[in-house]
């Protein structure tokens, strides 16, 4: 904790969890998808659904997927701006009570060829956690540079990625691996201290067991 965690951050009100955190969730979803998109279906759950209107949660998430930071004064106008960009935004609201964190959103982005569904929650103080990407359970905050790998669940891939990063002088801060079932698809989240080079996506995707690499930098 430093003093700017106490006097700060600069943000658009009214709520660090329901506004600033919502904008960060949207921005992370945009970065994780990493492609142009023309439609976003957003489900707000529990407290996000109930009090989201008065907190501008809907506007903040849309602002985030448009690439705005939590201190952007255009957050207020994000829904109008999304229309100008020709992006269709659909909201729905669900109450899952205790099944999910009180401040949870699920964002589905539609690109030309691909779609991606990303779920996350706002933990308070503007901090967030991505919990699910296309059905893979995960836990990362976006506070570090993050490499996301969608890959086959088979021996050697983790070692391949780790040695590639070692050669690029990238230090792994944290790492998490999950899979749908044995031998099926797996998802690996690697948080790094350094910013991964641009070539990381091309280089790692050239491995036959790696289907997709997403790099979300801080």
């Amino acid at each position: 904790m430093n003093i700017f965690d106490i006097i700060g951050p600069v943000m658009i009100g009214p709520s660090s969890s329901h506004t600033a955190g919502a904008a960060r969730l949207g921005k992370l979803a945009r970065n994780i998808f990493g492609e142009e998109f023309f439609q976003a279906d957003i489900i707000l759950y529990n407290s996000f659904a109930k009090t989201g209107k008065g907190h501008g949660t809907d506007k903040a998430i849309v602002a985030g997927i448009l690439g705005m930071e939590p201190d952007d004064e255009n957050i207020k106008k994000a829904i109008e701006i999304s229309r100008e960009f020709g992006i269709e935004v659909n909201f729905s609201f669900e109450d899952l009570k205790r099944e999910v964190h009180p401040n949870t959103a699920r964002i589905k982005l539609y690109g030309k060829e691909n779609t991606m569904t990303i779920s996350g929650c706002s933990l308070g103080g503007g901090r967030v956690m991505i919990q699910d990407i296309d059905g893979f359970k995960t836990e990362f905050t976006g506070e570090f540079n993050t490499i996301i790998s969608i890959q086959r669940d088979k021996p050697g891939i983790v070692a391949y990625v780790a040695s590639y990063l070692a050669q690029s002088n990238i230090n792994i801060a944290q790492m998490k691996l999950s899979r749908k079932s044995k031998g099926d698809m797996a998802l690996m989240i690697i948080e790094t201290d350094e910013i991964p080079p641009k070539s990381v996506k091309r280089d790692l995707e050239s491995h036959e067991g790696i289907y997709k690499i997403v790099v979300a930098t801080v």
Binding site: I6, M11, S16, G56, G125
Partner: peptide, 20 residues
């Protein structure tokens, strides 16, 4: 300003951002 979705500094939080 906070309640209108304006820009503020959380100090220490958004709810108490006017005092300091």
């Amino acid at each position: 300003v906070n309640a209108s979705m304006g820009r503020i500094v959380a100090s220490p939080t958004a709810g108490s951002c006017g005092i300091i």
